[in-house]
Simulated scan of single mutants.
Amino acid sequence: MPTLGQNQYGKAEVRVVRVLRDGATHHVRDLNVSVALSGAMEDVHRSGSNAAVLTTDTAKNTVFAFAREHGIASPEAFAALLARHFVASQPTIHRARIRVQEYAWDRIPTPGEGAHSFVRAGRETRTAQITHDATGDAPEWETLSGVTGLTVMNTTDSEFHGYLRDRYTTLPETRDRILATDVTAVWRHGAATPPDADPAADWDAAWASARDHVLGAFARTYSYSLQQTLFRMGSQVIENLPGVDEIRLSLPNKHHFVVDLEPFGMKNEGPDGAVYFAADRPYGLIEATVLREGAPARIPADLTNL
């Protein structure tokens, strides 16, 4: 007769973001939590009886509720709270394994303003594309610089309302939301000469300056739409870097939804902050090119083709 060996079940990759508001200064803990439970589960495997099973949806809700009620002092401490709870609260659960990944965020420097703008630490990739065309039908040299995977977030100073509605519109208007995106940006340098023609040219500094202007505009723009924020990001690069004639930005809207904790008798918004579900898909995708006046548009609309 077959016997049941090691087994476990649970909820994998619960994306929970805890924003703690200390006045104008916000603190973020961004976790990916996976719960695995095991114990007296012979009956559910042999006969389908769920009498010993705590649902995986309950495990997910517990992660959100604990993040709100207890906060997240550290990934280790939060995981311990959850593991202790699952084992102590259910007689059929004898073992709980909680795995946590934390995504680190660095503050975007915004002197004299609220500390609520962040950039994901260590994520972005610098890009470059050089085209040398000797046919005479195009500029001999084209230099594109860029960045991808530059993940940024504002925990306030973002609204979204006043949009078109039809019979399929269900999205509620909001006067305060998290605004987060993964920036892909490509900018074209106006000089039609090879990048190595001027030994004094500092391409590292030029790239860092463009990145700083993108981040600064994101942090300082009070946003009524991601389109507005995108245009300010591109405009800052054009206005401050005379060598750049064109910039193309692609910004997926990384939605963060306030978790409904009312069924557990908990309010999830207040002066101390809130707990959010970080959804990865589907997402809004906002794309546009910002040009220096009179400059031609040459960067492809689809940046994945670069």
Rank of each mutant, 00 (worst) to 15 (best):
V259H: 00
T58R: 01
G265R: 14
D196Y: 10
V33F: 00
G114D: 12
L20P: 05
A295F: 08
I238V: 07
E76R: 07
F64S: 07
P139E: 04
L179Q: 13
D204N: 11
A206Y: 04
A40Y: 02
E239P: 03
S117A: 15
M233W: 00
S223L: 01
E124K: 08
Q90R: 14
Y163S: 08
R15H: 14
Y222A: 14
P282E: 06
S145V: 08
G71Y: 06
D245G: 01
E173G: 09
P263T: 08
V63S: 04
D272Q: 12
K60T: 09
F118Y: 06
D280A: 13
W207R: 14
A192L: 04
I286A: 00
S49D: 15
I247Q: 04
V44N: 07
E42K: 09
I286P: 01
L171G: 00
H255W: 10
D204Y: 11
V53W: 06
Q236E: 15
D137V: 10
H70M: 07
R120S: 10
T3P: 01
T110A: 15
M41Y: 13
L20S: 14
Q227W: 00
F231E: 06
V152I: 13
Y163C: 01
A51W: 09
G234L: 11
P282K: 03
M266E: 04
T304G: 15
L150E: 08
F160N: 00
E246W: 02
T92V: 05
Q228P: 01
A185M: 04
Q6V: 12
V147N: 01
I98Y: 06
R126H: 11
H255T: 15
V290R: 07
L82Y: 04
V100Q: 00
P271A: 09
T304S: 15
W203S: 05
S34M: 05
G294W: 09
A201M: 08
S145N: 10
A185Q: 02
L251I: 04
L251C: 03
N32I: 15
D57M: 01
F277P: 04
F218T: 02
H94W: 13
E102C: 03
A134R: 12
R292Q: 03
G10K: 04
P139Q: 05
V290G: 01
P139W: 06
V147T: 10
A79N: 11
P194E: 01
R29M: 05
T184K: 13
S250W: 10
T92W: 03
H132Q: 10
D43T: 12
F64R: 06
R97P: 02
A278G: 10
D182A: 15
I247E: 03
A297C: 09
L54S: 03
F78Q: 05
W105D: 03
R177C: 08
T170Q: 12
P111L: 12
K267Q: 11
L150Q: 08
G149W: 12
P271K: 05
L291S: 07
K11G: 08
A80E: 15
A83P: 00
R21M: 11
E113I: 00
G5R: 04
G234V: 11
N253P: 00
H85G: 04
E246L: 02
D133L: 02
G10W: 02
